[in-house]
Amino acid sequence: MGMRVTLEQSSSAAESCVAVLKERFSGSGIESTVEHHSNAFKMPFVRIHATPQHWLAVAKFMKYDLSVNYCSMVTGTHFPDGPAERGWEVAYHMMRMPVSNVKPHTNTTHVAENLSGSDIPLEFEVLIALEQGDEPTVPSIQKIWVGADWNEKETWDLVGINFEGHENMHRVLNPHDSPEQFHPLQKQHKLRYHGYNEMYDDPQGFGRKPADEGRNK
């Protein structure tokens, strides 16, 4: 029969993580809260608002004290019209997974309802707001989670967030000879042909002009 981690298990795990985080990082401007998704089972997750200067300390604490062993996703966002202290945002999604090496000819078959303590799978969302400017920079966590390596490469490539201390940074999705400072998910780059009227009036596209014509790219 199918199984699932229950809401109570997840909530208690999330709350204990938040309690530990609050105790360790009190007074340093790092906020952690328990939030709930609004789809499916309304599962809770831990949301942490960190600052670039404290991020490495928080990351190490998450990895070694909260046993967060999986860095699944790094998302950069550009807010050119945002306030001065939030021109960019980097969001990390981390998971805690009850996975460890097994002895030969054995396996681990967790039963979701019986998991307790730091074995309960949990989701973490870390948000780091960066100031307006041309050089958004956060420290790299490549050394803490191997999985962050290519995620950070992708985020730099597409959004242009600099990861300080990242080794072997290079383009991964864009062509390797893309111009420097070209990061397509920054908001000054507009999609060229997305006006619907334009599309229907001139389906062949002969009369179209790029939306960013004349802009220095």
């Binding site: 699932r4 999986y70 009850p98 996975v99 460890s100 681990t108 979701a112």
Partner: peptide, 29 residues
């Protein structure tokens, strides 16, 4: 298994290494 999780590998590839971790029960939908 641990190397794979650290590197961000998931799904059947991790279950092949002997752990029954699956998003379908761990982060249920």
């Amino acid at each position: 298994a641990e190397d794979m999780v650290d590197a961000g590998v998931s799904g059947p590839n991790v279950r092949a290494a002997g752990v029954n971790y699956d998003v379908r029960w761990a982060h249920p939908y």
